[in-house]
């Protein structure tokens, strides 16, 4: 596999001779990665007849009607709004509760500190699939929150908490203490220090965990599938239902899917650096 590069090639810079081979591999991996997505987007510009006659062809002529159908479909906008609200609530609760929990775990010294942190680490091992059926009963029967935004957002935030705390704590620990101590000596309260100093300083990490929570919620399927119906459905549910309902309308499904992908894709690509660092932090920590 890796024998493409000849032996004794300088390690990191890579000999000039090796570069074409590397470029080919890079291009191949990129093509496979984005190929299906690009194909989906392109086929959204074709008619079903075009697709049927030549599955792998390019649009000719280019047609916009699949996309205009999606964009003028009130259901699409309703699903998008639901996804947006649920993701925003999830993010707000997960990041808020997460940074509040991470702060004492990073700054106070108390006997139960490490065991408490372990609770969050172990929380990583409680995945949604395991809890889903009782969760469904809890939310629909006991809390009467089925088919509401909060009914989905609160459990999602709870499941996002472990990774949030695990990423935030080391970040908070590494912030310089001097500012906080100076403020304490000047008579600021702990809460004031947290609010005015720790929070603003940890903004980069908050954005990382925030984006993770947001995209996690935006993409989530299992919990909305069980809890949301009709007009409350989120985009993934809408996409899945649309594709079952109109499975013969390949072009329409692909256009719908492509448009539904864009928000998360744009958000993620814009903040890519932070996310990778966050994931890496989680892997290291």
């Amino acid at each position: 596999m890796s024998t493409v590069t000849g032996p004794a090639t300088p390690a990191r810079t890579g000999g000039r001779l090796a570069d074409p081979a590397v470029a080919v591999v890079a291009l191949a991996v990129v093509a496979v990665s984005v190929g299906p997505v690009v194909y989906g987007a392109l086929n959204g510009f074709r008619s079903n007849e075009q697709i049927a006659s030549d599955p792998a062809g390019l649009p000719s002529p280019w047609r916009l009607d699949n996309y205009t159908t999606v964009l003028t479909n009130p259901d699409f906008w309703r699903y998008a709004a639901n996804s947006m609200v649920v993701a925003a609530l999830t993010t707000l609760v997960a990041v808020g509760a997460g940074v509040m929990a991470a702060y004492p775990l990073a700054r106070y010294r108390f006997r139960l500190r490490e065991p408490l942190f372990m609770v969050f680490v172990l929380g990583l091992l409680f995945p949604l699939a395991t809890a889903i059926i009782p969760l469904f009963v809890l939310i629909t029967r006991d809390l009467q929150l089925s088919n509401t935004w909060w009914g989905v957002a609160l459990p999602q935030a709870a499941f996002a908490l472990p990774v949030t705390v695990v990423i935030l704590r080391p970040f908070l620990m590494a912030l310089p203490r001097e500012l906080e101590e100076a403020a304490l000596i000047d008579g600021a309260s702990r809460l004031g220090v947290f609010w005015r100093i720790a929070l603003p300083l940890s903004l980069p990490a908050l954005i990382t965990v925030g984006v993770l929570a947001f995209v996690g919620s935006w993409n989530s399927y299992l919990l909305p599938l069980l809890l949301l119906q009709g007009e409350m459905r989120t985009l993934p549910l809408g996409v899945a239902d649309y594709s079952t309902q109109y499975s013969a309308d390949t072009a329409g499904v692909l256009a719908f899917t492509t448009v539904a992908t864009l928000p998360a894709l744009i958000l993620f690509l814009a903040l890519q650096g932070r996310i990778v660092n966050g994931l890496q932090g989680a892997v290291k920590g």
């Binding site: 993409n219 996409v239 390949t250 992908t261």
Partner: peptide, 21 residues
């Protein structure tokens, strides 16, 4: 960035695209 695109997509969306393919 481009290699990361499939990971960013929702599993549902990726599934629907591949189902069509």
């Amino acid at each position: 960035t481009l290699i990361f695109v499939p990971y960013v997509l929702a599993e549902v969306i990726a599934g629907v695209i591949w189902f069509q393919l």
